[in-house]
């Protein structure tokens, strides 16, 4: 499958600054032209999507405020073309099922080159 290398916008949502740094660093290594923006909670992410209009989004689940899965649901209801990958250390079946029901995928933390590749492959199929 040909990979679209044109500059895309991605929103990284995670309450941990270190986790956001890690995700950004791995994405930049594989997609140096992409434009990243960051949000530290679901509520900020919902507001930022309206302004930034990203193509893709990575979403943590456990954050202060609303869970990332609820934020993803609200974002997709308003912007169905955005592709979202849920990143979580909590990979129990209930979370995987919720991610699937939203039309997203759940990728397990820790964030590594391998997990970012899974996310990028999912975005590439979009």
């Amino acid at each position: 499958m040909p990979v679209d290398n044109s500059a895309k916008k991605i929103l990284i949502v995670d309450d941990s600054k270190v986790s956001r740094m890690l995700i950004r660093s791995h994405i930049m290594a594989q997609r140096p032209d992409w434009i990243t923006s960051e949000a530290a909670c679901g509520e900020d992410a919902i507001a930022m999507v309206d302004v930034e209009q990203p193509d893709f989004c990575t979403m943590d689940i456990n954050m202060p405020g609303i869970p990332g899965t609820d934020a993803a649901e609200q974002i997709l209801a308003k912007h169905p073309s955005i592709k979202i990958v849920i990143f979580s250390a909590n990979i129990q079946e209930t979370h995987q099922e919720r991610a699937r029901s939203l039309g997203t995928i759940l990728v397990s933390k820790p964030v590594t080159e391998k997990s970012i590749t899974l996310a990028l492959d999912y975005f590439a199929k979009a």
């Binding site: 270190v18 986790s19 250390a89 909590n90 990979i91 129990q92 397990s108 933390k109």
Partner: peptide, 26 residues
């Protein structure tokens, strides 16, 4: 922040193991 993230990942792994023991979400 780094340690909290590390332990949060650890907590996620523990929750998965415990959920398999209790047969419900943890």
């Amino acid at each position: 922040d780094a340690l909290a993230e590390v332990f949060s990942i650890g907590a996620g792994r523990a929750a998965l193991s415990l959920s398999e023991i209790v047969g419900d979400e943890v």
